[in-house]
Amino acid sequence: MNSTQAYPAVHGDILLLEDDAAFAPLLREVLSMAGYDVRLARSAPEALAHIEVGSLAAAVLDWRLLGDSAEEVADRLQSARVPYVFASGASATAVPERHRWAPFFAKPFRITALINALEEARAAGVPARA
């Protein structure tokens, strides 16, 4: 049995975009333990496919991906009015101004702070014109 199925999805479906092969499963497990049903994507195209499926409550995005960024993913989430937070080794200044309303956590970060920000973003929603 996949360990992420052992926890109830009390907080809804979230997209986790993380390309670090060692960190992604760990963060997925912790978010699952916090009550989220996590859809893991390791690339922007994978993340975009998850967005197309719909029913996302929120997203956690690594800004800097191997040879890419999460810019198109953040644009699509913003258009779909799905709130997101960034958890990345990149600098917050790498994120374009239109996405700087979203909380940014530089790695390493406290998981409790990330989860609190994720819930606050869900409560606040996506600004009309960020």
Rank of each mutant, 00 (worst) to 15 (best):
V30K: 04
A121R: 12
E120K: 14
P96E: 08
A74P: 05
L40S: 10
A92Y: 09
Y84D: 03
M1E: 10
E52R: 15
E46D: 15
A113N: 14
W101P: 12
V30R: 03
R39N: 13
D19C: 04
V126E: 02
L17A: 01
P108E: 10
R98I: 05
D68I: 03
E46I: 06
A74T: 08
R64L: 13
A102H: 07
P25E: 07
A6V: 11
S55H: 15
P45G: 09
F104R: 01
A121F: 13
P25Y: 08
E46Q: 15
P8V: 13
A124D: 13
L66K: 12
E18P: 00
A106M: 03
L15H: 06
A130E: 10
V82M: 02
E71V: 05
S3K: 12
Q5I: 07
A123P: 05
E29A: 05
R81W: 10
H11Y: 11
D20H: 04
T112M: 13
I51N: 08
D68N: 10
E52M: 07
R64I: 06
L66A: 14
A113H: 12
A22N: 14
T93R: 13
W63G: 00
E46C: 07
T112I: 13
R81P: 03
R64A: 14
A49P: 09
V82Y: 02
H50C: 12
P108M: 10
S43H: 11
P8E: 14
A59N: 03
A34G: 05
Y36V: 07
E29V: 00
S3H: 12
R110Q: 14
F86R: 02
N2V: 05
A49C: 05
N116A: 15
A121H: 07
R100P: 08
A102E: 05
A102R: 05
A21H: 14
M33N: 06
S88Q: 09
A34N: 07
V10R: 12
S55G: 11
S88I: 04
R110H: 11
N2T: 08
R42Y: 00
I115S: 01
E72W: 03
G12S: 09
D19W: 04
E29Q: 05
L114P: 05
H99A: 07
E72N: 10
E29S: 04
F109P: 02
S3Y: 10
R76K: 13
W101K: 13
Y36T: 05
E71S: 06
A34D: 14
A59P: 05
A21G: 03
L66E: 12
I14P: 00
P45T: 03
A41M: 06
P103K: 06
L65E: 01
E52Q: 14
I111Q: 00
A49D: 13
Q5F: 14
